[in-house]
Design a protein around this nucleic acid. Structure first.
Lengths: 200, 200
DNA sequence: ACAAATATGTTGCTTATTTGACAGTTACAC
DNA sequence: GTGTAACTGTCAAATAAGCAACATATTTGT
């Protein structure tokens, strides 16, 4: 059952595609293992060699995506030499958007459905972990006027919300542009960053 | 190796799709077994379990289509009771066009390529066989003023040419319409059938 | 509430496919 | 030329997947 075996790769791929196809036309609770197997052109028993049930399958599919976010490429220290904190920050956000863009078939399907997985919350926590893990690389050892956790939570929910907006509005900007918007708003704050004036 | 086994069905399907995909971008001679295997997500050795080489594969793909034409559905005698010879004639031609339409991905790819299979000739012979085999059902026991073989050959090449024209011009009419055109031209002849006047 | 139908997990046995290796051929660059 | 890289066809051993049958659940219709 090593995932290197072509047969395994092919059935896993088949199950995944079959399941996502079915999700387009049916709600999760109405999908049966037999239907998944039929579309994937595999025997029903084979499904159980890889997943315990459809909940497990869904969970794996989501977790796989979250893992990709958690393992976003981070250049080795000597490669970031001389690169501004700001640019590292931009790149990290850009990568998140790129990952979602590459897999937008999956994400566009899932975010608008309440019958399955609280995806938004999982987004937020995944992003939170990324920023937690590489806080110093991104922001340096600067003194903070407020608890780090508050800053990180604020950032994560903001980015997650922007992702949702972006998907719901059919990705009107590139990942790069989205990252720039977010960084601008993060640096100057949403009020000053947007050019709003609070004083008449 | 019964074709009922899901694994067999899936690999045969994979090989076929993979091969046709490759044919879109490469000429036949440049295609390797490894490339076919890679796209189909099968091991190269598996290819040889089903085909001796790529020539065999191509041959099977074409033959499969010709077999479908040769085995065009013919309603049982008691079902054709009271149906005119003309209508049976129309239906038979219509079925041929429908078969090609259902599989037009394959046909549109193949007819315009000289590097592979003399498809047009095989079309003609397949159609010829169909009409030979059901001559009496289609035309009855009428006395002919010319050899039957000449009539059948004339008809077959005409239909085959119409198929080619139809595909090359992106199927501008339905199979039904094409059948009607052909029957009209066959009954009245291309001159009178088209309304042309030879006398000034 | 019941019965009938459908869906779920699981099993033993069979079989198609994978894998890596092999020797022989073809293609191509230096 | 001569090497070397890629393609071909075939093999034995290991294994994933197929299949049919089973006993339980769950759903559905009346």
């Amino acid at each position: 059952m090593t995932a290197a075996d072509l047969r395994v790769k092919k059935t896993l791929l088949g199950i995944e595609n079959s399941f996502l196809e079915l999700l387009k036309s049916k709600e999760f609770s109405k999908i049966t293992i037999q239907q998944i197997a039929d579309r994937a052109m595999i025997n029903r028993a084979t499904f159980y060699l890889h997943y315990t049930d459809k909940f497990h399958l869904l969970e794996e599919l989501i977790q796989k995506r979250m893992d990709r976010i958690l393992n976003i490429y981070r250049p080795a220290a000597h490669l970031t030499e001389g690169i501004l904190y700001k640019d590292r920050f931009i790149n990290t956000i850009k990568y998140v958007f790129q990952l979602v863009e590459e897999d937008s078939g999956f994400y566009e399907l899932l975010i608008k459905r309440e019958d399955i997985g609280n995806l938004k919350h999982r987004f937020e926590t995944a992003i939170l972990h990324v920023f937690q893990e590489r806080f110093h690389s991104l922001f340096g050892q600067q003194a903070l006027p407020l608890p780090k956790d508050i800053l990180l939570t604020f950032l994560s929910t903001a980015i997650s919300s922007m992702l949702y907006w972006w998907l719901a509005n059919s990705k009107p900007y590139t990942p790069e542009q989205m990252a720039l918007f977010i960084v601008q708003l993060s640096i100057k704050g949403p009020i000053n960053g947007s050019g709003l004036e609070l004083t008449p």
